[in-house]
Design a protein around this nucleic acid. Sequence first.
DNA 1: CCAAAAGTGTTTAGGGTACACCCATGT
DNA 2: ACATGGGTGTACCCTAAACACTTTTGG
Lengths: 233, 233
Amino acid sequence: MNRYDKQIRHLVAVDCIIFGFDGEELKLLLIHRGFEPERGKWSLMGGFVGEAESLEMAAARILKQLTGLSGVYMDQLNVFGDPRRDPVERTISVAYYALIDIHKYEKQLSDDFHPEWFSLKQVPKLIFDHQQMVDMAKSKLRDKASVQPVLFELLPEKFTLPIVQNLYECVYEKEFDKRNFSRKVLASGLLVKTQAKERASSKKGAFYHRLDKRKYRTQFQSFLNLKPSILNQ
Amino acid sequence: MNRYDKQIRHLVAVDCIIFGFDGEELKLLLIHRGFEPERGKWSLMGGFVGEAESLEMAAARILKQLTGLSGVYMDQLNVFGDPRRDPVERTISVAYYALIDIHKYEKQLSDDFHPEWFSLKQVPKLIFDHQQMVDMAKSKLRDKASVQPVLFELLPEKFTLPIVQNLYECVYEKEFDKRNFSRKVLASGLLVKTQAKERASSKKGAFYHRLDKRKYRTQFQSFLNLKPSILNQ
DNA sequence: CCAAAAGTGTTTAGGGTACACCCATGT
DNA sequence: ACATGGGTGTACCCTAAACACTTTTGG
């Protein structure tokens, strides 16, 4: 078969919005850009898409390069294609957001890119349209989290209910009533209470919970049963 | 500044999933592909992204080329980047879905591509991964429509409540109680009842309604107040 | 013994759902 | 007159929201 020879070709990049949660704050992993233009400025981790590489593969490769992690939760966010978004040369960027367990990351720190975690409340000035990508990722994460239990991807294997609540409060930038919150989350049936207690952050101690992995997979689509009411009838 | 000279470049295309509604059924506008490979097969309308053309511009251009319409509601769906999705040569495709008023279209029929409307219940075999694009578009349309009143983009200026209900029933493939449905939709305050009646489809006749355009714009984000309950507290 | 965070139950209000009859009119 | 689809009101139930006290234990 012929090739589409007369057509123009484009640079295609992938940029990753990497979220983490340390128990206190929602965070973003940024790198110190190591080359011109904008050398030394803060940037999302990114890279060009290879010749026979799918977009998901490219995103996973870039994520692994920075964090050492694979098998991480990722989701396509949006494509940014403004011809002048990169001043050097037109680059079409496919943005992915990833949710990682920040504790797993810390062990494997790869310092080539001088990466740093920033609180989402104090994101430094970013290059190009990366701030727009971050804003869109925050918004999409909220939408997703209201329908699917994706936020647990940010937590370690064992976590307490107060931690889960704090995570949701960070994502939605709102405070919830702890009685109503725990009732709702436990009603999903996704959490299993363990006998162990976390004792660092309070005197009484809070019970660790873990995900019921089978239910987590099978009920992933129906978390909180929050489909719009038009659909319920 | 330097260019990213060592990087590989890719063909980037845009494909459009074009929805229409004739009052009876939800429909999809497909074209008869006019060139090899897969000549004569049914396909989504698409085209390559030009040199200094944004993705939105490309999508709008392609839509106008086929339908004669501009200023149409469009939304980015997803990027499809599997290296082997187009057997001729690797092409990264950005999919957009569009909602058009099918009546406006019919006047401007451009026959170059032998386009045809298909019921979503009887979509013919499509080339490449276009069926996957259609499925994803249907799913995204449902999600959007549960939160924003986008489906009115499919309707003409004046429409009856039974037509609106039928549209929602087509999109969600479910039947609704007409009393509850009209109460909910009218409670949004987005519709204005006119004195005119539609008389073709029933003896009694149904009142035409139109959008309150100011409210449609300002309340677009809060249609049906169906945010998940975690957010409400 | 006190401070600090964890854990738990009840009441109330609002919205969603189910449900049935009358209306207008073309034939 | 009758068949067809349009239009409207009510009662119930369920879930979300508001709200306060007891428990545990480290210091």
